[in-house]
Structure formats: C-alpha cells, structure tokens
Design a binder for these strands. Sequence first.
DNA 1: TTTT
DNA 2: TTTT
Lengths: 164, 164, 164, 164
Amino acid sequence: MASKGVNKVILVGNLGQDPEVRCTTNGNAVANLSIATSESWKDQQGQFQERTEWHRLTMYRRLAEVAGEYLRKGSQIYVEGKLQTRKWQDQQGQDRYTTEIIVDSMQMLGGREQSGGQSAPAGNQPQRGKPPASNGYQQARNGQQGNNQPIAEPDFDFDQDIPF
Amino acid sequence: MASKGVNKVILVGNLGQDPEVRCTTNGNAVANLSIATSESWKDQQGQFQERTEWHRLTMYRRLAEVAGEYLRKGSQIYVEGKLQTRKWQDQQGQDRYTTEIIVDSMQMLGGREQSGGQSAPAGNQPQRGKPPASNGYQQARNGQQGNNQPIAEPDFDFDQDIPF
Amino acid sequence: MASKGVNKVILVGNLGQDPEVRCTTNGNAVANLSIATSESWKDQQGQFQERTEWHRLTMYRRLAEVAGEYLRKGSQIYVEGKLQTRKWQDQQGQDRYTTEIIVDSMQMLGGREQSGGQSAPAGNQPQRGKPPASNGYQQARNGQQGNNQPIAEPDFDFDQDIPF
Amino acid sequence: MASKGVNKVILVGNLGQDPEVRCTTNGNAVANLSIATSESWKDQQGQFQERTEWHRLTMYRRLAEVAGEYLRKGSQIYVEGKLQTRKWQDQQGQDRYTTEIIVDSMQMLGGREQSGGQSAPAGNQPQRGKPPASNGYQQARNGQQGNNQPIAEPDFDFDQDIPF
DNA sequence: TTTT
DNA sequence: TTTT
C-alpha cells in the first residue's frame, strides 16, 4: 500500500524449462520460473564472449495460473516485478539467501505459435479443460492489487524449496 | 555489445552505510554499496506491517569513484543496472550464490545538504584534495560504454568477498 | 485489465510550478503537473550545452489529492506511468495533439524540508485543515487499481484544457 | 554526458508500418517508426473497451540502419529511450509540438519468422546486399554513446516532417 | 545497515 | 516553469 523507495525489475527472456506451479494451503497458486538473458561482446583479445544470466521468478495467484497454462520451456516473456531476497537454512543449518523476482505483471511475446506446444504438458499445472491459446497475446496482472504490494502468503513453506 | 533479452533493474533507496571502494590490480575502482527499499501495508488483522529489502550494488570505474566521493550512509540515490548472480565457495567449499546489481547509471537525489556530510569520511575513498560537493546533484555513468555492456574485470578477486 | 504491449515511462524531475488540481463532475480529483529533466554535454566545439525537457503529467484520484497537498514548485519526484496522446481542437478548429504521462505511482524524493514550504499555498488544492507534511516521504498509488489500467473519466472536459 | 533527473521510456509494441529511414546530410541514418500498445477493459456498463496508443519513435545511426534492414510492419520490438518534444511550425506559421521517443536501445522480439518477410522491402532502406536475418534476435545500441546522451543532429531538417 |  |  505504501512504499519508501523504488524496487523495480524489468526482464525479457526465455524460459529455461516449463513453469512449476503449486498451490498454497489456502488454495492460491504459486509459480516458479527461470528465464535467461544474455549478452555477448568481444574481449580485449578479440575473442567473442557470451554470458548468460538466469533469473528466478515467482508469480502468485492468477498470474501463476496463467503461467502454468500458457508458458512452456522456450517461451519468451516480458516481466515486471521487484527484487526479494529470502533467507533459508541448508541441510547443515547454515543461513543461505536466494534472490528472486516477484512478478507483478507479465506479457507473452512473439505471438502465434511461438509459446507452448512442443514440450509435454507438465503434470503440475491446473487443468481447466482448455487447450493453451493458440496466440501468445495474453497478459496478466494480479487482480486486486497494484504493483509493489506485498502479498501475505504465510502458509507457503518456502523452507522446503530447493535452492535455485 | 549485443544482448538477447533485457535485464534491467531500477532502484531508489538510501545507503545503509558508506560505500566501500577498492581498486582492481589494473587500477580501476570498484565500489560496493547496499541500499534499502521498503514497503508497508496492513495485514488481514489490520496490523501495520513493514518489509525492508536490501540490495547489493556494484559500481565500476568512474561511477565507483563518484560513489566514494559523494555518497555516504543515508544518501538517497536512483540507480539503473542489471542483475548478476555470481558463484563463490564458502569456507566448507560449498557453492554459494550472490545476486548483485551491476550499476550502469546513478543519480543522487534530494539536492542541497542531503547527501554526505554527517558521517565521518571513510578511509577507503580515493582522496582528491576536494571536499564532497555540498550539493547532491551529481550524475554519473560509466564513461566509454553504454548500458548492459559487460565489463571485463579479470583481475578482481571476488572470491575474497565477504558474502552479502 | 489486459494489455497488448508495454507502455511505461519513468521520470525523476522537479516541478516547474505548483500542481493544478481540479475535480471532475463526479468528484474525482485530477492534477496536472509539469516536471523538468535535463541533460548536458560538450558539443564538437567543446562548448557546454544543456537541454531541458518538460514533461506534462496527469494524476487522478488519491494521487491527485496527494500531489495537491504535498507537492510544490521545485519538489523532486519519481513517477511511473504511461504515455497517452489526446486529440483536441484549437480555436481554428484544427486537430492538435498533446502527449502526457498518466501517472500510476509517485514517490516524493529528498526527504526532510525539501518539498513544499516556500511557495504560497495555491488556492486550488483541496483544503483539509492540515498543513503540508514537513517531511517529503510520502508515496501514493491509485488505490483500487493496478498499473496500466485505463481510468474512465467520461465527465472530465479535456477540450477546455489549455494546450501544454 | 551528465543528466539531472531521469527520462526513460520502455515500450513493447508492434510497428504500424515499415520504418522510414533517411540520411542526414552528414551521412547518418535516421529512422522513424510508429508502434502501437493497447489496453482493454470492461467499462462500468460491462462493455468491452479497447484503447490503442501510437508512439512515434526516432532512431539514429546504427540503430536506424538495423531498423531499416530488419523491421517491417507488424514486427514486435522492445525499445528503451527518452521523451523529447520538438517544436515546429505548421503551414499557418503556428507553433506546434510533437513528442517522440528517442530510442537508445532496441530488441527484436518473437524470434523466428515473425519479423520482416511479408511486406515488400521499402525503397528507402539502405541496401546492403544481405537479406533480412531469418531469426529475429538482433539487438542494437548506438555504438559510441551511453543512454540519455544528446545527439547533435544540426543538419537534419525536422521542419519538413509531416506531423505525427 | 538506510529512510520516514 | 524546475533543479544544480
């Protein structure tokens, strides 16, 4: 509802794998996605270099459902969200930290046949008896809230997450 | 020089402490800063909640020098940059990951007396025989390169970094 | 509610004058502000050049009220919004176009005494029996809607607007 | 080289027509493009509404050449740039203003067959004896300059432009 | 660790 | 018309 400062991330990239979608105990969907961005340049020796960066995304509610229904490995998306670093304990009981992008809004890019399709439907998406839209123009936003709004998800057990 | 995708972060926040500025063995400055953003909301019980997010920033070259000269604990800045996750080994030899924002451009905010001043000059800033500017309107960008360009810093030993 | 594409503007600048706040016939506040950004460079003759860009902002509802209460000529703000070009007729009946930024979210910058104060209270702000806050840390967002959502303002007579 | 404030626009949209590319008298390319973004919503009567916004883009140098070679009507792009309003006189000698986005960086979206192709090659693109790339992953940035840098183009006759 |  |  109120913010001090600005915490904004804008990414355009392709999914490294199908989204993982789960439900919280109170019935809200949560999706985890990873997308890649990369850059390439010539180094001082004139050699071509490339660096790929992987970004871990988290989506909630309607956005998570849309991701589960329409996104697949290879899908290209635009996302806007905020950075969030959460603390967890590894098996040795050590504190560890993972930084994720909590997504506020998402756009599927490329239209037409580009998104979805090839990869087999993952078992964890909410099934709704509808095939994925054949055109990629879907947009989604978490319904009842503006950007940057914290989402209370007290019953979601992040401790069980595999570190990214 | 070329990118596939977009990797962009925009932050406005206040420094949690004075910048740490070092030099690489080839004489380039590197600065580490941490800035806070926060958001507050009423939870379902009507209780006021606040969450502060800390962001680790890395600046290079001229931008790092400017940070060392003009920024202090409490300074409010706007930064634009990209996400980068680097791998390092902890003392047990375990792989760990830290996500940082590599800053492409920075703006000091608030003007007037706001930035610098109160906190004692840290010993690690490049001294140039000039006092910090009394006004905060400084802007900086890494001179010879556009945004999103990878910066080769092969001689900088990140492994010695204390994890964020 | 749904978007095709992304239409996003991010500005940090200072108000050229006090905000103008009006009410629509159904009681919603509308504010118009103009803010400046500038850039400077050396031209090929080594001469220092500066260019100032003026941006026309429009805010609605709660955001407009906050602007009227807390912002003054000279205030530094961060805004996020979208571009919108509206058509109007000049006195010769010619079509003309004005591009504005419809603001989704706003942050006052600089803290402390920076905002408000010096300039006399304009007569057109909603009076609420409270003086402007002495500190600038206020943030606002249009309450019941997310970003990028069109705001139906059918009863607001834009045709009477003075061109920017 | 230096900025006061931030002036940033981020758009994802589709070209309404092929880019128009020209050369300045000193041999630099300049491209004009228009791209659409749109949003749709249900109004208070439950009727579906849609609003399309058209954005006028200007690109210089290498970016303009890339646009001329690879972009066509319908191409989907991501652009980042800054707002600039320029003044011109209409045939009655009246001052008029046009707001454009001066593009700093561009990404072609959608990959594969999506971009280029169908529409006949416009006569005004620099011909280079190469067919358009069959895959859309091209990125471009104005070589020798960072973002937000003013580009001196004193010999380009904007007065002859048809108003947007 | 900041800021209000 | 701002700001430095």
